[in-house]
Design a binder for these strands. Structure first.
Lengths: 118, 118
DNA sequence: TTAATATTTCAATAGTTGTTGTATAATTGA
DNA sequence: TCAATTATACAACAACTATTGAAATATTAA
């Protein structure tokens, strides 16, 4: 994780629409959600949603897979783990355990994001 | 943690300058850093730094304490813990342990942020 | 092939954010 | 008190972001 990537991730989530999209995808885990369903669930016009989904996929925070004429989106949780590590790994001069924030890395077998971890 | 607060925190960190400030404060833990030292360490003009510090303190991500004519800033790590919890607590329909991301809450005795946890 | 569905791209516009210099406020030491 | 130091507030401008509707692209079904 580097500064530019971290800033881009924060920009990705610094929008009410994108934050709701991300959380919806986190809740739906490996199953993911297709674009039209995201739009109807959140009440966001498809044009606008597409704009925000593009921002989220561009950072890698969300992945997309074509499924016939649908686009299925999923949250990429390992990116979030890396981000948290970046924010805390130098805490107190390199002793993150003192800070009360810990992160386990996402394993390949993770029930929540396995189909999404390539 | 609610949506508006979370978006505000992400906005706070969605800037190279603010992210560097935050990480500098995390590294310095309870000791904190005064504004002038932040400015010289990061090479940011005082006027501009003040703008960014205001944004960080406004969200509560950073706290400030007056010390004579200096303003001493510190990272508020408990806010970060809450944010992470907000992002992951409904993962996989309420089973965050499946996601590989865990967060311990910041304790009052935390060596890193104790003088900052009021 | 044609029509319908799902999604994205484009262009226009409104609003927001970041940067700078100058001016101001607050604290300290002589 | 006065001058020096530290930091913030304000105003102006450039740059970026979000939203919308209309048009385009891609897939499926008839």
């Amino acid at each position: 994780m580097n500064k530019v990537t971290a800033v881009t991730i924060f920009e990705s989530l610094a929008s009410g629409v994108r934050l709701e999209v991300y959380r919806l995808l986190v809740r739906n885990g490996a199953e993911g959600v297709v674009a039209g369903e995201i739009a109807s669930t959140l009440g966001v016009p498809p044009t606008n949603l597409s704009f925000h989904l593009k921002a989220l996929t561009h950072t890698g925070l969300v992945s997309v897979e074509q499924e016939g004429r649908f686009q299925r989106y999923r949250a990429n949780l390992s990116m979030m783990s890396e981000l948290i590590a970046y924010l805390t790994d130098e805490c107190c001069g390199g002793n993150p355990e003192l800070c009360g924030v810990s992160v386990k890395s996402v394993s390949a077998e993770c029930a929540c994001s396995s189909s999404d971890d390539k």
